[in-house]
Design a protein around this nucleic acid. Structure first.
Lengths: 225, 225
DNA sequence: ATCCCTCTTCTTGTATACACGAAGAAGACA
DNA sequence: TGTCTTCTTCGTGTATACAAGAAGAGGGAT
């Protein structure tokens, strides 16, 4: 229906320059993050196409992309099944994310890399964002961690990190929707991380990352009740 | 994500049970690994479709998938550009791969996980494979390392590992084609890794992994000449 | 001769039509 | 009444037709 909106909170649908494939991708993704599709159910191409106002072709491409990103599971001759979040996968995800971010901050410290000013900017944007705009909060938080990983100077590591984002975004959305996440604590920890990183204090930043990401498994267990 | 693809030698055309999309994917991927497409060039959909004997639709889906896997780069209104291998990316790739496999073997040792018998089987298959069948050699080697990562019991880690395979496969193919890789050395090291893993000797296996993967940057520099 | 403009042509992006297979409903038989 | 079979229906998989933008050729102006 009227559901499609992009990451930035601005009205993106009126912009006709956007391709149909992109509109389909964003629209379906937003609904997935919103929990509009039941886990385990199938997304029907014609229905999605009509809802967005495009034909099946761009919808199929969007579904393929979403499947590659881990949102969906493609079953031959059946369609695109919505993947649910299970505790085991989230535990694995947390472990991998910790590995990636720890590797990144260690590298930054050891190689005395300059910490991008972007991090502070993102903190300010986070502060300025309305806590009700879940999509925006999640996006800014993602950008913050991505910027840290990127500062390590390994493009493949960034790609790996990006590949983890699909389930992460869903967990984050769920937390915010249910009022579990506390954005002020997150922001405070982010500022501490900037300080430790800028000082190239490896022990401190590794500890901070561990504690910061430890939010996730606690959120998960809170959500499971 | 990285689908199991019919390993090399088998003739893949006559099998009619395979979907057109899969035929397109395998066909284009094989040509990419073979180096039949010049890096930086564009793959034209109609030409590829006619070469495989299907229409543009499955070819488009195959191109999307190959782009998601890192073989191609999609440029809007231009098409699918063949990504080349550059030294910087390969260095990054090696670093990430080392991080992943080190994490896996450490976890296996620390949690006293049982090492799958599959590893020995794969060694034997490797031994039995004709050294001329590049695709098969590369595939078996990939399966060996994937089995180790899988033995760590973290599905997300396996997915990350699979995500690295596109450029890895291309490097491996290139090495074999140019006679740089020595399969017997690789196999010997694989057997040592099985032994160290089975003994849960963390220091030994980490060292072995480091030395084993260190083949890669050396291959790369050899290929660059 | 060089540069710019225009037009042609080719390729991708999107829509639609057709084919095949799967899931569920309805009916026959035990 | 329960189960097996068959048929209908619906949705994906694939092919094709149409639209629109981009690259390159060709001609004209400076």
């Amino acid at each position: 229906m009227n559901g499609q909106q992009g990451s930035g909170g601005a009205e993106t649908d009126a912009a006709k320059g956007i391709s149909a494939r992109e509109r389909a991708y964003r629209g379906i993704r937003a609904k997935l993050l919103n929990g509009d599709f039941p886990a385990g159910g199938f997304i029907e191409e014609v229905a999605a196409a009509e809802a967005i106002g495009v034909s099946r072709s761009p919808v199929r491409e969007a579904l393929n992309r979403l499947a590659a990103e881990g949102y969906l599971e493609l079953h031959p001759r059946r369609g695109a099944m919505v993947r649910g979040l299970n505790a085991a996968e989230l535990r694995d995800l947390y472990e991998v994310r910790l590995m990636v971010e720890t590797h990144a901050v260690r590298k930054i410290c050891r190689e005395r890399r300059v910490v991008p000013a972007e991090l502070t900017v993102l903190c300010e944007r986070h502060e300025a964002t309305s806590p009700d705009d879940f999509l925006d909060c999640v996006e800014i938080n993602r950008l913050f961690h991505q910027a840290i990983v990127a500062a390590a100077g390994n493009t493949v590591l960034v790609q790996v990190f990006d590949g983890l984002q699909a389930p992460l975004a869903r967990v984050a959305m769920l937390s915010l929707q249910q009022g579990v996440g506390k954005t002020d604590i997150i922001e405070d920890e982010h500022r501490q991380m900037i300080a430790a990183l800028s000082a190239h204090d490896e022990a401190a930043i590794v500890d901070l990352v561990k504690r910061h990401l430890d939010l996730m498994p606690r959120l998960v267990s809170a959500l499971q009740r």
